[in-house]
Simulated assay, not measured.
Amino acid sequence: MNSNSRRSTRTFDLPEMRRVHYGRGCSSRLPEAIAELGLKRPLLVTSPSVSNGPIGRSVRESLGGLAIGVFTEVRSHAPAAAVLEAIEAARAYRADGVISLGGGSAIDTAKAVSMSMPEGVHDVDSLQALSLTGGMINSPLAAEPLPHISLPTTLGSSEFTHSFTVTNSATKMKDMYWDRRVVPQIAFLDADLAIHTPDWLWASTGIKTVDHCIEWYLSLGRTPFTDALVLHALKELRDSLPLAVGQERDADARQRCQIAAWMSAFGALNVVGGLSHAIGHHLGPRAGLVHGHTTSIVLPAVLEFNRPATVERQAALAAAMGSDTTGLDTNSSACQLISALNELIISMRLPRTLAEAGIWDADLSGVARAAMNDPMLRNNPRYVTLDDIEALLGSIR
């Protein structure tokens, strides 16, 4: 091997999951997964709407007579106060594992419980001390997290990642937590559960998964393996997302969307998003927007900003989105990406501006400053300044 070969050597880390069950009805195997992990006192972590609806009823039926604790107070964006309540509920129940049921906030809250219980977290300060903000960038957790089984009902893909965020109410920022052991050991992708998820939530998390695909393909940390996965996932999402919402609400299309979301997140230990994710982490909690709505508003403007550094790759993404680029030069082909993305956003009735989302007064300067310190920004393919972010945010009003 010559010196140039050595310099180009890279390593691809695999997620530390045991397995993924997928297919309609697979969640009936939940008791089997609980037994496999040796759990005697798992805590179910979910939201009131999921717990009280058909999804919650279906999961309780699958559990039969198994005794589990239940925490049903998950809140959007996983605010620290709700996360601490979940940790205390787990401690009071003497939980030896967690089961997340719902979307990204439920999964992130369960990850926080999994991490925090063995670490003795009792308050905001001890919780934040474990975050990247608190200095834990290269320091491993002292104790092994509790085992985690995930039953996602949206397309956020948190069930496949080794990180999560908790919203700090004092700073209105999302603190990020990272440890490769917080990924759930077992996940269930069951469209028979996901079919009950409201269209608006499915669409918003779907466009977030599209954002994963696009930003990973453009990321400075991209890999050939993840490139292939996200391009295939993007094509599947392009075809299946419109079928998964609306009056028809095709369960099989939702199952295909779940598989695409899995593909989009499989390499999360190796490559992450860029400017769109960095802004979304802070625009959401500050403006009261779900993450998917921040994506539908921000991603087209981010692609416009990044095009000078990514024109060839944006052209490839445009083709994956179904754009006819026959006879077009590379730059013109790349321009088709935003058009295809906007068509998908409009077809799913997602907002394209803050005004369309009903947001007239948001601390955009605070969002810009917070985004400049977000870890995701280092992966953006084009150098970003505070002025750049403020200008971008001004364009999406």
Rank of each mutant, 00 (worst) to 15 (best):
S8F: 13
F12I: 10
M17F: 12
R19Q: 15
S27L: 04
L30V: 09
L30W: 08
P31Y: 00
E32A: 15
A33H: 01
E36A: 15
L44S: 05
V45I: 10
V50G: 01
S51K: 11
R60N: 13
S62D: 14
L63S: 05
I68M: 00
I68F: 02
F71M: 05
E73Y: 13
V74A: 13
H77T: 06
V83F: 10
A89D: 07
R91N: 15
D108S: 10
T109C: 01
T109D: 00
M117G: 09
E119W: 00
V124E: 15
G134P: 06
G135I: 03
S139V: 15
S139F: 11
S139I: 13
A142D: 14
A143Q: 14
H148I: 03
T154I: 12
G156L: 05
S157W: 15
F160Q: 00
T167Y: 02
N168L: 12
A170M: 08
T171S: 15
D175V: 10
D179K: 02
F188H: 03
A191H: 01
A194M: 11
P198S: 01
P198F: 00
L201D: 07
A203I: 03
S204I: 08
S204Q: 11
I214H: 03
E215Y: 00
L220G: 09
L229F: 13
V230F: 05
D239Q: 14
S240F: 00
A260V: 01
M263H: 07
G267H: 07
N270C: 04
H277D: 07
H281R: 14
G284T: 06
R286G: 02
V298K: 03
L299M: 02
L303N: 05
P308L: 07
A309S: 11
E312F: 06
E312A: 08
T325G: 12
G327I: 12
A334V: 05
R352L: 00
A355D: 04
L364M: 15
A370E: 00
N373E: 15
M376K: 13
L377H: 09
R378C: 12
I389C: 01
A391G: 12
I396T: 04
